[in-house]
Simulated assay, not measured.
Amino acid sequence: MQPSVTRWKTTTAARLRTTALSLLAVVAAVGVGAGPAVAADGNVAWTVRTASNGYGEARSSYSYNVNPGGAVEDAMVVANRGPAPLTLSVYAADGFTTDAGQLDLLTRDTKSIAVGAWVKPNAGSVVIQPGKTAQVPFKVSVPENATPGDYVGGILTTLTQADQAEGINVDRRLGIRIKLRVGGELRPNLAIENLHVTYAGPTNPFSKGDATITYQVHNVGNAALSGKQAVTVSGPFGLLRVRAEDVAAPPELLPGESWNVTVPVHGVAPAISLAATATVTPLLTDASGSTTPLKPVQVTAHGWALPWTLVLALVVLIAVLVGAYLYRRRNRAQRKAREDARVRDAVEQALRGPEPQTS
């Protein structure tokens, strides 16, 4: 199998170095054609692969189980496919999951605190002649106080070249993933956080609309986890239930990482009150590659699904009825006031008696 290799590119303009990386390619471990991964640009080309040793041959990546205080030694093989001698820097870095759901590695000028700090190449650079290969040994030393659980990073080779046309320096990086499980109690766990449901109904109050459910999947355990997701929306008492179709699985999340999820659900009746339920089944992958489903995590949130056209019609009707009632009440009050005034005038006239006649 081909190594799980990632190619990165970093640029430097003048003296300002960018720290953002653009993930250019990830070579999968299964179903990929033979041959090592290549980083090529102009007259520069090199490959990297795992060394064949007691850990195995043609490994897709590096994977270790090490207890706190323990250490392992391994090596990476680098080959120069270009026509000129090649000097590459070698270093390790912590990994993280990007917003696109891909594994990326920290830049060299960003401090690593786990795999990137624990993996030490025997040399910070390697010189390879054209058509030749070089083996780069490295050692993984896990501190005594390391927290049990999963860590991901990588070991990288990098080449800095000047781009005269653009006036910048370009760093090209080619590396292999390192997955490290530190011995101790494994507590795999995912949580669903910040679950919300919103509703957008049609103009016709008797037609169905769309609900949008948003939430975060948070890895609150100490093991790397992926998962299967399901989302349902229902009205009061579980009636009018609708299930979302093809909810995409989150990427494998490292401990502490979160993944934002937005799920549209179509054909939802405006049932006044909606209950949105998100279910995530964590998937734990062991060293052999087999996946085990864990106990599902389920959270429910409520929201309004009002048929706004009907509500507006009811509001207008109520306003008309209230207006009519107030108008009639005012008219009655005015008629009563006029009648009271007429009676009062008549009484006063009677009390005064007839006016005296003048001759």
Results as ranks from 00 to 15, higher is better:
Val27Gly: 04
Gly175Glu: 06
Trp118Gln: 13
Ala271Trp: 10
Asp340Met: 14
Pro205Trp: 09
Thr98His: 07
Val119Asp: 06
Gln298Lys: 11
Thr300Cys: 05
Gly149Pro: 04
Asn222Cys: 00
Arg335Leu: 15
Thr281Leu: 09
Arg342Pro: 05
Asp104Asn: 14
Pro356Leu: 08
Val261Gly: 12
Val66Asn: 01
Gly35Cys: 13
Gln161Tyr: 10
Val247Tyr: 00
Gly124Pro: 07
Arg338Trp: 13
Arg173Ser: 00
Met1Leu: 00
Leu294Arg: 13
Trp308Val: 14
Arg352Ala: 14
Thr277Phe: 13
Val66Trp: 02
Ala333Ile: 15
Pro251Trp: 15
Pro293Gly: 04
Ala333Arg: 15
Thr158Gln: 11
Val119Trp: 12
Gly56Glu: 03
Ser273Asp: 00
Thr10Gln: 08
Ala249His: 01
Lys228His: 10
Thr300Asn: 09
Leu86Asn: 10
Thr291Ala: 08
Ala346His: 11
Glu245Asp: 07
Gly69Trp: 15
Leu24Phe: 04
Pro85Asn: 03
Thr157Asn: 06
Ser290Tyr: 09
Asp171Phe: 00
Gly175Ser: 13
Ala14Ile: 14
Pro255Cys: 06
Ala51Asp: 11
Gly238Glu: 03
Gln102Trp: 11
Tyr55Trp: 02
Val220Asn: 03
Thr97Gln: 08
Leu16Val: 15
Gly33Glu: 05
Ala333Val: 14
Val247Met: 07
Asn122Ala: 15
Ala93His: 06
Ala305Met: 07
Trp259Phe: 01
Pro307Phe: 05
Gly42Trp: 09
Lys336His: 14
Gly116Lys: 00
Gln334Phe: 13
Thr300Ile: 12
Lys228Arg: 14
Gln229Arg: 11
Gln357Thr: 14
Ala39Leu: 12
Pro143Trp: 10
Thr47Cys: 05
Asp171Glu: 05
Val343Glu: 00
Ala100Thr: 04
Ser141Cys: 00
Val142Ser: 07
Leu186Cys: 11
Phe96His: 09
Thr87Val: 13
Thr214His: 11
Gly31Asn: 02
Glu73Tyr: 15
Ala75Gln: 07
His218Asp: 06
Val78Gln: 02
Asn169Ile: 04
Ala134Thr: 06
Ala58Pro: 03
Pro202Ser: 02
Ser22Glu: 13
Thr87Cys: 12
Ile113Gly: 08
Val315His: 02
Ala313Phe: 00
Thr158Cys: 09
Arg7Thr: 05
Pro202Cys: 08
Gln135Val: 15
Gln349Asp: 03
Val30Thr: 01
